[in-house]
């Protein structure tokens, strides 16, 4: 059985025919070809697939496309404007918050949810928030620095 899913994706109204079992991340990557959202584990652990759904960060490998029917979804591709990186993306670049970059889209989307909850998060809060985002390269220190710097840039 297929069903029609309609959603606002990065500000645009889109729709697609999906199976009940199609995951949101499959819809985003395979159908809409927005490949900035990554699949690291496919088991809800790593956070590489984090996107925002109705303003909250979610693991898109653990949401059915059908559950996002009617929702507002935004991905990493929604952040840069006119070729200019979002302050949080720029902060990751400036602070060496990435090496291979695989985890980065999820880190950035997760960080933006944190900043929406608290515009000035402390180090402990940032580390705690990153519980659901794994990075195999950086050792996290520079990610934490990047998020603090990104939050600061967003405040000013």
């Amino acid at each position: 059985m297929t069903l029609t899913v309609t959603m606002t994706l990065n500000g645009e109204s889109v729709s697609a025919e999906v199976e009940g079992r199609t995951l949101l991340v499959q819809l985003i990557r395979d159908h809409f070809r927005l490949t900035g959202t990554h699949v690291g584990c496919d088991t809800s652990q790593c956070g590489a697939c984090v996107v925002h759904m109705n303003g909250q960060s979610v693991k898109s490998c653990t949401v059915l496309a059908a559950q996002a029917d009617g929702a507002e979804v935004s991905t990493i591709e929604s952040l840069a404007e006119n070729g200019e990186l979002h302050p949080m993306q720029q902060a990751f670049k400036d602070n060496h918050g990435l090496q291979c970059g695989f985890c980065t889209p999820g880190m950035v989307m997760s960080a933006l949810d944190l900043v929406a909850n608290n515009p000035d998060p402390g180090e402990a809060e940032i580390r705690d928030w990153l519980e659901g985002n794994l990075c195999r390269c950086t050792g996290y220190h520079n990610i934490v620095k990047s998020i603090a710097a990104g939050a600061q840039a967003m405040r000013s």
Binding site: G47, V58, S110, L114, G132
Partner: peptide
Amino acid sequence: IGDPQVRNR
């Protein structure tokens, strides 16, 4: 419980 994304859902 879990992490922020698990708690959001």
